[in-house]
């Protein structure tokens, strides 16, 4: 794949984009999303989504689907709105003052911005893993058990033990921590902390897991472990991942969405995006001409 990317650059050196186009909001506006943003029987369906921070619009008219049990990666230069869009998917933006959202976002046909919908069960169905590992300053056990406890998923202590064990196993952390479950989660290494956060998220058995640059604070070995984990988790969960690393997007996802200045430029099968992008902005980005 590496070779192919380089080839693309060498083949079309004359097609360097004008800097103006890349930075100009108006020029990008004209572009409609290319590729195949929609799938059959989507898990989550977003249509004409606009996100505003006060006066400032961060997301412009984004429409795309996330299919069941697929890994969708979202890439794009800094400030392109990919994290904002991801956070809109489980209403984490609610906590930001002055942030409001237009358009339709549905989880299995249900509008997640329905005023009657309770955000608590929504977040139990659509979990989130954050950029910086953020375990609670509690024991490893309590970190994982917190979700099941507050949602009342288990009644007996033995069941809770089991949930904690399976979650840690699925997050590939069990063997490393099984002897020190009572120790603080904050005492683990960065990569272990992030896997602990993933275990904490999957302990409430969500349907969708949103990952906001989960590896950006980790070293390459820890990153490799998380990526492996994502591949395993995709058997049971739908995953949307925001990443700065194009290699990571290429390795873990089946479809890739490219965001630029708050607009969704292109969504396509990952292989297609990285070998033969349809949009010139996508191509410019993946060939490293900006970003």
């Amino acid at each position: 794949m590496e070779a192919t990317v380089r080839e693309t650059v060498e083949q079309k050196p004359e097609r360097l984009l004008d800097r103006q186009v890349i930075d100009d909001q108006e020029a990008v506006t004209a572009a409609a999303t290319v590729g195949k943003p929609f799938v059959e029987a989507p898990k989550m369906a977003m249509r004409n989504v606009n996100v505003f921070y006060g006066e400032k619009q961060a997301i412009f008219d984004v429409s795309m689907d996330i299919g069941s049990n697929e890994v969708v990666s979202m890439i794009g230069p800094s400030g392109c709105g990919k994290s904002t869009f991801l956070r809109a998917l489980n209403r984490m933006n609610d906590t930001i003052e002055g942030c409001w959202i237009e358009g339709s976002l549905q989880l299995e046909g249900q509008d997640i911005y329905d005023p009657k919908l309770d955000v608590v069960p929504l977040r139990a169905r659509v979990g989130m893993v954050f950029q910086k590992p953020n375990p609670f300053p509690k024991s490893i056990y309590d970190n994982v058990a917190y979700g099941p406890r507050i949602h009342g998923l288990v009644d007996r202590r033995a069941d809770l033990d089991e949930v904690v064990e399976t979650s840690l196993q699925r997050a590939g952390l069990w063997n490393e921590v099984k002897d020190r479950l009572a120790q603080p989660g904050t005492g683990l290494s960065g990569g272990q902390q992030q896997r602990l956060c993933i275990a904490r998220t999957i302990a409430v058995s969500p349907e969708v897991i949103l990952m906001d640059e989960p590896c950006s604070a980790l070293d390459p070995i820890a990153t490799a472990k998380i990526e492996e984990l994502i591949a395993e988790l995709s058997e049971n969960f739908t995953i949307a991942i925001v990443t700065h690393s194009m290699q990571q997007a290429a390795r873990v996802s089946s479809r890739t969405a490219y965001f630029h200045l708050g607009k969704l430029i292109e969504v396509n099968d990952t292989e297609k995006v990285f070998t033969n992008p349809e949009h010139e902005l996508t191509e410019a980005y993946i060939t490293g001409r900006f970003g």
Binding site: G127, M128, N134
Partner: peptide, 19 residues
């Protein structure tokens, strides 16, 4: 980040504050 972690797994605002 601690608040987000709590909210992210579905804690209500009160649970986030109290816990």
């Amino acid at each position: 980040s601690i608040r987000e972690a709590a909210l992210g797994i579905g804690a209500s605002k009160m649970q986030m504050i109290l816990h």
